[in-house]
Amino acid sequence: MQLEKQSVLAKPLVSALLASFCAILWGSAYPSIKLGYELFSVGADDTSAKMAFAGLRFALAGLLVFLVRSVQRGPKQPMRTLTVKQWGSVLLLGLLQTTIHYYFFYVGVSYTTGAKSSILNASSVFFSALLAHFFYANDKISVRKGIGILLGFLAVIIVNFESSLTLSFALQGEGFIIIAALLHSMSSLYSKRMSKTIDPVLLTAMQLFFGGALLLCIALLQGASFPKSSIAGFCLLAYMAALSAAAFSIWTTLLKHNKVSSITVFNFLIPVFGTLLSALILGESVLRIQYLASLPLVAVGVILVTYSSSKAPV
C-alpha cells in the first residue's frame, strides 16, 4: 500500500492528465473510424469490409499491448500458467467484448454521425450500473445513481430527435450503437470477474488479439478482401491500433494506483471529445440543439453513477 502512495501515478495532477489523455484517445476513435472507411474505400453497405477493418485494428492493438507489457517492469503472469478453463474464459471474453461488440459498433457508426455515436455509446456506463444492481449485492442502485441513470437515458432519447421534433433512429445505425454499449457493459462485468485471477494487462492483450483476429477471419471467409489503402490509410490504422493499446494500458495502470472512482469519472469526457473531434476532423456540426442538450446530461449522469458506485465495497 505504501508503494502505491509513492508512485508518481498516484499524484492527482498526473492521474488526471493521463485519464484525460485516455479520454481524448477514445474520443478520437469515432471520427477515425469514419475517416478510415473513406481511406480504405469501405462501402456504406459493405458489412464484411467493415468487419475486416475492425478486426485488423484490434488484432494489431492486442499485439501492441503484448509489446507494452513485455517492456513493463515488475513480475508478470506467464501465459503458460493459464488453465484450460481460463483460456476458455479469455476466448469467450474476446468473442463478446471484441468480435461481437465491435461488429455492432463499427456497423452502427457507419450509419450515423461520429458526434451522435459518441453520445449514444456513453450509455454503456448506465447499462453497467443497471447490470451491477442485479449481479452484485454490494452495488445496488441508490437514489443518486438512479438519477444519473435516468439523466443518461434521457440524453439518449434527446440526441435522437431532430430540430423538427421528429425521431431519427435506425436499428442498423443508432440501434447498433446502443446494442454495442450493452454488450460492452456485459463484457466489462465478466472481465472484472476474470481479472481477479488473470493479470488485467495480459487479459486485455489476449482478448483484443483473439477477438480481433476472429473478426478479421470471419470477414475474409465472407468474401471481404484484406484491407488495402494508401500510406495515409495504414498510418491511420496504426494510430487506431496504438490508441487502443495505449489507452487500455494507461487506464489499467491508473486503476492500480488510484481509487476507481477518481479515474472512471473521466469517462464523461469521452463523448465530449468524441463530439468536438468529429466536428474538427469530419466537419460535423456540433451546434445542433439535441447535441447541446444531451452532452451535459450524459456528463452529469456519468459523474453521478460513478461516484455512487465508488461508495460500494469492492
Rank of each mutant, 00 (worst) to 15 (best):
Q172M: 13
G173V: 05
G175A: 09
I178P: 06
H184P: 01
M186A: 08
S188Q: 13
L189K: 00
L189D: 02
S191C: 06
R193N: 02
S195D: 04
I198N: 03
I198C: 02
V201W: 04
L202V: 09
M206D: 06
Q207P: 08
L208I: 02
F209R: 02
F210R: 04
G212L: 10
L215H: 04
L216E: 09
C217H: 07
A219T: 08
L220P: 06
Q222G: 11
F226K: 13
F226N: 13
K228Q: 13
S229W: 06
C235K: 12
C235M: 14
L236H: 09
A238V: 07
A238D: 15
Y239M: 02
A241R: 01
A242S: 15
S244A: 09
A246Y: 07
A247P: 04
S249L: 07
T253H: 04
L254P: 05
L254W: 11
H257F: 15
N258Q: 12
N258P: 10
K259A: 12
V260T: 14
V260C: 04
S261A: 14
T264F: 13
V265C: 00
F273Q: 11
F273S: 10
G274P: 02
G274A: 03
T275D: 06
T275I: 12
L277C: 07
S278P: 10
S278I: 10
A279K: 01
